[in-house]
Design a protein around this nucleic acid. Structure first.
Length: 283
DNA sequence: ATGAATACCTGAGAGC
DNA sequence: TGCTCTCAGGTATTCA
């Protein structure tokens, strides 16, 4: 379940191992991973071959390889995407979907069990791929504007968790870190965005940033030189989660058992004491 | 314009 | 053992 910190780890790995390399060949094992590249796999391969990767960038959960001449390869890991760096002769991983051969005898391999992720060639996308122009800046972006976020979330009339999962308001937050940040603040996931106090929004932003920074620090230092494994298991999962997945476990603040609700086709974990459910529409 | 619902996917695990 | 069902959830698209 890669969210922003996991994707940032991938970006660092690509920056280390792929930037400076030229793509010498493209093998598309499953066209579904190119769903967003409408011209098809042959066009994708043609546009990448011979191009040099000059940078690795990220916004929220999207990352892209900057190519020479200003184009880019835009990538999303979806739920299960992984990038791996391997010797070209190494046995392929399970669920290998796309392989980019590099000029150093290695391959950048994209494996994705569930195919929610994928790649697309982005023309003139090196600075910011036009395909993700609608994605908001993420909380680790120096140009992220808390005042603008506060104004925009207040204009919404929806639950606060729904809002922070909306990548056009703030990007990079997924279900797990949403629950963690809401627990820390603390706020119930259904609190109405329109009636949040400034202090509560500020607290929420602070905790989103902290959760992500901590996850990055714990997971971002552990990738192997030859194996950019980025399946989302940052290590943060096992040790530090205080809400997500903790149903029935005592809240680490007050001891009340953590509850789980079905919400937005997924689960929300929350402490009924620290994060009381709003009575109705207001609050 | 905005919020809500749905389609896209595979595999692990539960239940029978 | 083997079948069906449920669940995991980010995003684009469609609908209200």
């Amino acid at each position: 379940m890669p969210e922003l910190p996991e994707v940032e780890v991938v970006r660092l790995g690509i920056a280390d191992h792929v930037v400076g390399r030229t793509i010498t060949g493209v093998t598309v094992h499953d066209v579904r991973s190119l769903r967003r590249h409408l011209p098809g796999p042959a066009d994708f391969a043609h546009r990448l071959e011979g191009r040099t990767v000059v940078g690795a960038a990220r916004r929220g959960k999207y990352l892209w390889m900057e190519l020479d001449q200003g184009d880019a390869v835009l990538c999303h890991l979806g739920m299960s995407g992984q990038f791996l760096i391997s010797e070209a002769a190494a046995p392929p991983p399970r669920h290998l979907r796309i392989a980019l051969a590099l000029d150093d005898g290695r391959e950048l391999r994209f494996a994705d069990q569930r195919i929610f992720g994928g790649m697309v060639f982005s023309e003139d996308g090196a600075e910011l791929p036009p395909e993700i122009a609608h994605i908001a800046r993420d909380p680790l972006d120096p140009l992220f504007d808390p005042a603008e976020f506060t104004a925009r979330i207040r204009r919404r009339q929806t639950g606060v968790k729904r809002a922070i999962l909306d990548q056009t308001l703030i990007s990079g937050v997924g279900n797990i870190y949403a629950d963690e940040a809401l627990w820390r603040t603390p706020l119930h996931y259904a609190r109405n965005t329109r009636h949040l106090r400034t202090r509560e929004i500020e607290g929420l932003l602070t905790h989103i940033g902290e959760v992500m920074q901590e996850a990055l620090e714990q997971g971002g230092t552990s990738f192997d030189a030859l194996y950019v494994n980025v399946n989302g298991n940052s290590g943060y999962f096992d040790r530090s989660l205080q809400a997500y997945g903790q149903e029935g476990e005592p809240c680490q603040r007050c001891g009340t058992p953590i509850r789980r609700d079905a919400f937005m086709n997924r689960s929300s974990f929350w402490c009924p004491t620290c994060q009381p459910r709003p009575r109705s529409g207001k609050f």
